[in-house]
């Protein structure tokens, strides 16, 4: 028996919007720790890892570890039927091949339940090693989204370089080149407006902008984004989900042939 009650149901709606274009089908894993997902895109170039900790739910009952295969496009269709202020409860019985999403309006005058068919997904779970990164950049998520969108109108790839001067996003295409440099800036009114650069050593890596733009669909989940870079590792683009956990996108770099 599984029953997870999320008062801020809009979080789950936003999570689905953030990942449904990157991943078609995925197993949601439910354990005492929380509600989680790890999935790769169909090209096996990007990986998304989601964690919504059990403590973040108003009610969290998960009698035994359960993996539920869902088509994310179908799940998104169902969650779009929930209001932004609705409380969402996820329910499943042991051995059932369906999951139920229950939506309650804030004043309890409307209760809806949507039952979705589960699917068997033979997915590979990858071990993500703990790593020390050469550079970690925290910046406003809206700024990062703007840069990725702007650069993708010029080129297909972005070179992200971190030096003591700041973080530079560069692209080139048929019509020309573009460079955006963000310097560390901690003298701001609100902490989420700051750009903070922790650099152990300079690093420069190349990535496909198509994936970066896909990751920025998580922007509504968090005011800030944290980008971790090391020369021999995929980039990590992390959006923290307040009080609950995170959504992390890993993207393998492009390397010189």
């Amino acid at each position: 028996m599984l029953e997870l009650r999320l008062v801020q149901g809009s979080l789950l709606k936003k999570v689905l919007e953030a990942i449904k274009d990157l991943v078609n089908d995925a197993n949601f894993d439910c354990s005492a720790t929380g509600f989680s997902l790890q999935a790769m895109d169909s090209s096996h170039v990007a990986l998304v890892a989601l964690l919504l900790r059990s403590e973040g739910f108003e009610h969290y009952r998960c009698d035994r570890n359960l993996s539920m295969g869902m088509n994310l496009n179908n799940m998104s269709k169902m969650l779009k039927c929930a209001g932004n202020d609705d409380i969402i409860t996820i329910k499943a019985d042991d051995g059932s091949d369906t999951v139920t999403f229950m939506f309650e309006s804030p004043n309890q005058d409307k209760i809806a339940d949507f039952e979705m068919k589960l699917m068997d997904i033979d997915s590979e779970h990858l071990g993500i090693p703990e790593a020390e990164y050469q550079a970690i950049v925290r910046m406003p998520s809206s700024e990062f989204a703007r840069i990725c969108k702007d650069l993708s109108s010029i080129g297909d790839t972005v070179v992200i370089s971190v030096t003591k001067e700041g973080v530079k996003f560069s692209t080139r295409g048929d019509i020309g080149t573009a460079n955006v440099v963000c310097r560390q800036n901690t003298t701001v009114d609100k902490p989420e407006e700051a750009t903070v650069i922790e650099m152990q050593e300079p690093v420069s890596l190349t990535f496909a902008l198509r994936y970066m733009n896909s990751f920025t669909k998580a922007t509504p989940l968090s005011g800030t984004v944290t980008i971790s870079l090391s020369s021999d590792l995929p980039i990590v683009v992390e959006y923290k989900i307040a009080e609950m956990g995170y959504i992390r996108f890993y993207l393998a770099p492009k390397i010189e042939d």
Partner: peptide, 14 residues
């Protein structure tokens, strides 16, 4: 020309 690496190159199966 750039070669797109895959995630498998970095992360192993559990």
């Amino acid at each position: 020309a750039c070669l797109q690496r895959r995630i498998f190159y970095y992360f192993s199966k559990d």
